[in-house]
């Protein structure tokens, strides 16, 4: 074997070894266990995930929770892609995949960070949902920022920060009249 071929073989072996071993490096625990379940004015009840939801998560962790706050009753979905980053998408992309049309998308300022207000319609129904990512810092809405943070976390073995979680909140009762006023308090209450 020529020296060049030996070097190339070493490169291949290193590539295979790194690809197999890197994802096995233990990472710090996820924030999903710290999502508040009760607090002053907040109570909640977990719902079981459906078979379809479990299949879509494919190893990622998810929470489906009915949340009661002073401003109403809500359905909260939280996705943690620590074990399967591909389970976390741009929320608009997920809803479109389920057949919803995004008729509006608005970025709402919070006391620190931002959340997205999505207006979703089908021919005979419509609703609005609040979506945001959080890694323990200010909430954000950009999927690109999510990808960058989640990738950097894996490459740095968790040193760069926590795995961002995706939060989607929709009202179970009548739609709120003023999301802009409600969003900061809701996000602050429900985000660890």
């Amino acid at each position: 074997m020529t020296p060049r071929n030996s070097a190339l073989a070493a490169v291949l072996i290193a590539a295979v070894a790194l690809s197999l071993l890197w994802p096995m490096i233990p990472m710090p625990p996820s924030l999903i266990d710290q999502v508040p379940t009760s607090a002053q004015g907040l109570s909640s009840r977990d719902l079981p995930l459906s078979e379809t939801e479990t299949r879509w998560l494919a190893g990622a962790r998810g929470i489906k929770r009915v949340v009661r706050t002073p401003s109403g009753i809500w359905l909260l979905a939280v996705t943690d892609g620590s074990n399967n980053r591909q389970a976390v998408h741009d929320p608009a992309y997920c809803f479109r995949g389920e057949g919803w049309t995004i008729s509006g998308r608005q970025t709402l300022p919070l006391s620190s960070g931002h959340a997205s207000l999505l207006s979703l319609t089908k021919p005979d129904e419509s609703f609005q949902a609040l979506a945001w990512f959080s890694d323990g810092g200010p909430p954000f809405t950009s999927p690109l920022e999510y990808w960058a943070k989640a990738t950097l976390r894996r490459l740095s073995c968790g040193l760069s920060g926590n795995e961002p979680l995706l939060f989607i909140l929709r009202p179970l009762g009548p739609p709120p009249k003023n999301w802009t006023d409600l969003a900061p308090e809701l996000v602050a209450t429900l985000t660890p």
Partner: peptide, 9 residues
């Protein structure tokens, strides 16, 4: 490809 695999991107 290896960086993509390690970073799950």
């Amino acid at each position: 490809c290896v960086i993509g695999q390690a970073g799950s991107l």
